[in-house]
C-alpha cells in the first residue's frame, strides 16, 4: 500500500503515512493520499485538463508541503481535482526543484464520491525521511 491513514493521530483531522521507492513515487503517493481524503473513487477522476506545477525549496519536506498545498489550491480556486503521475525532482546547489504536469477534471458530484474537504496541510509532526532505501512521509491534513 503506497499510503495508509492513521487512526490514532489527529482526532478531528486526517493523518496519513505515504511511502515511495524514490522521491517522485513518494510525491505521487502523497498527492493521491491527499486527494483520496476528498474523493473516495480516485479512478473516477478523468485526465481531461492539465496544470503545470513548478516549485523549488531548500528543504525536501517543505517542497512536499508546497506541492500538496498546490493541489488544495486548484481544488478551491477551480474545483479542479488533480492527480500526478510523473513528478520530476532534482537537487541542485542544495536546493530541490519539482516539475510536473498534473491532470484531472472539475469535480462532478454525480461521479466523484466526496468524503471531506481538506482545508490545509499542517506542519504538526510533518516529516519526509529516508527509510529502507526508499522514502516515507507523515502528514496531518486539517479537515
Amino acid at each position: 500500500m503506497p499510503y495508509h491513514y492513521l487512526e490514532e493521530v489527529g482526532t478531528a483531522d486526517i493523518a496519513f503515512e505515504a511511502t515511495g521507492r524514490d522521491l517522485p513515487e513518494l510525491f505521487n503517493d502523497a498527492a493521491d493520499a491527499t486527494m483520496n481524503v476528498m474523493i473516495e473513487n480516485l479512478k473516477a477522476i478523468e485526465p481531461l485538463e492539465t496544470r503545470r506545477i513548478e516549485l523549488s525549496n531548500d528543504k525536501i519536506d517543505m517542497l512536499l508541503f508546497d506541492f500538496l498545498q498546490e493541489l488544495i489550491y486548484f481544488k478551491d480556486a477551480e474545483r479542479l481535482l488533480l492527480r500526478v503521475r510523473d513528478a520530476r525532482i532534482d537537487e541542485k546547489a542544495e536546493k530541490y526543484f519539482l516539475k510536473t504536469e498534473a491532470a484531472g477534471e472539475i469535480l462532478d458530484p454525480a461521479r466523484h464520491r466526496q468524503r471531506a474537504d481538506v482545508k490545509a496541510v499542517t506542519l504538526h509532526g510533518f516529516s519526509v525521511e529516508r527509510e529502507n532505501g526508499g522514502w516515507k512521509a507523515r502528514v496531518l491534513l486539517d479537515i
Binding site: 487512526e7 490514532e8 482526532t11 483531522d13 479537515i143
Partner: peptide
C-alpha cells in the same frame, strides 16, 4: 469535542 478519529469512525 471528538473522542474518535475520523479514520476510525469511518470504519
Amino acid at each position: 469535542g471528538r473522542t474518535m478519529s475520523r479514520t476510525k469512525a469511518r470504519k
